[in-house]
């Protein structure tokens, strides 16, 4: 069965003056994925989403939604929330959504299911200026959900939400994905991404550091936690094995990132060979936080 490509980017680059915000970014997003875009502040996450959503022009490279040219993309198939929610504060929630419905060319009645999903059905006539930050965020999510789109692009969707709201958004993402909606989610909340995403792209200073399924990336390296009586011997060993990185050191306890699979198997034997005296040893898969630190630190 052919996998349906919903978004493909080809060497997408965006510069602001001399600053490279995004550099040769190429990925493909398939139907059914929940793609997490990870990266520290200023890594190019919002720039990437702004470019593919047509808010900003790429400096070079191109992209396609549903294998069509950007100006031919049917808008109702994509819902998006980029950066902070924007709205007309003097208008009611309903009027704000009427404007969005007109832009998406969808029926007025389609507003109400989106409001229901975002938990805002009771606030139809309220002016947006009276909304809390969390309610504004929910309204922006309702705007993204209008018209039951095939793909939803969310940039930091849990910003401003209370813990209960965060859980609701997380559950909503899972529910939408279970219903077949593809989701692209930019966040620096690693826990959120690990809980909700099937795939991850990690950005650093506009460059793509890693892209793949969460499982694939998390098993690509191992974390060894070792307590050592003679650290000097360990440092000697690390000098000749640069693929093993020290992620953290607390006294004589080291967290080591072991990238090569053969080293993961032979690590204990290697320690013996180099005369490294171990008092405790544990090797396990990475979590997303450790992978993220590994990728953005190098």
């Amino acid at each position: 069965m052919e996998i349906q490509k919903l978004l493909s980017t080809n060497n997408l680059t965006k510069t602001y003056g001399n600053t490279v915000a995004l550099s040769n970014f190429s990925i493909e997003v398939s139907k059914g994925q929940v793609l997490g875009i990870l990266g520290p502040n200023g890594s190019g996450k919002t720039t990437l989403l702004s470019v593919v959503m047509g808010l900003r022009y790429p400096t070079s490279g191109d992209f396609a939604w549903f294998n069509t040219l950007p100006n031919q993309t049917p808008n109702r198939k994509i819902g998006a929330l980029i950066e902070v929610p924007t709205f007309y504060p003097y208008l009611s929630l309903l009027d704000n959504l009427r404007i969005s419905a007109l832009a998406k060319d969808i029926n007025y009645n389609e507003i109400f299911p989106a409001l229901e999903l975002a938990g805002l059905s009771a606030n139809l006539k309220a002016k947006l200026s009276s909304f809390s930050l969390g309610m504004k965020q929910r309204m922006a999510i309702a705007q993204a959900l209008l018209g039951n789109p095939d793909i939803i692009v969310l940039d930091e969707p849990t910003n401003g939400l209370d813990p209960e709201g965060i859980v609701e958004v997380r559950n909503l993402i899972k529910k939408l994905n279970a219903g077949g909606t593809t989701i692209i989610l930019a966040s620096h909340n690693l826990d959120e991404v690990q809980r909700t995403c099937t795939h991850v792209a990690v950005l650093k200073k506009g460059h793509l550091q890693a892209y793949g399924s969460v499982n694939e990336l998390l098993t690509s390296a191992k974390m060894a936690i070792v307590s050592i009586k003679n650290p000097d011997a360990l440092f000697e060993y690390l000098n000749v094995n640069p693929d093993i990185e020290v992620i953290e050191q607390q006294g004589n306890t080291f967290k080591l990132m072991v990238n090569k699979s053969e080293q993961q198997v032979t690590l204990l034997n290697d320690f013996q060979t180099y005369g490294i005296a171990i008092s405790s040893f544990e090797i396990r898969n990475l979590n997303l936080e450790e992978l993220f630190i590994k990728l953005v630190r190098k």
Partner: peptide
Amino acid sequence: GNDFLFGTYRRSLLDGFN
């Protein structure tokens, strides 16, 4: 100028107006 002030041109573009 309101659409610049409130940033709503972004919203309109995201929603599908060109």
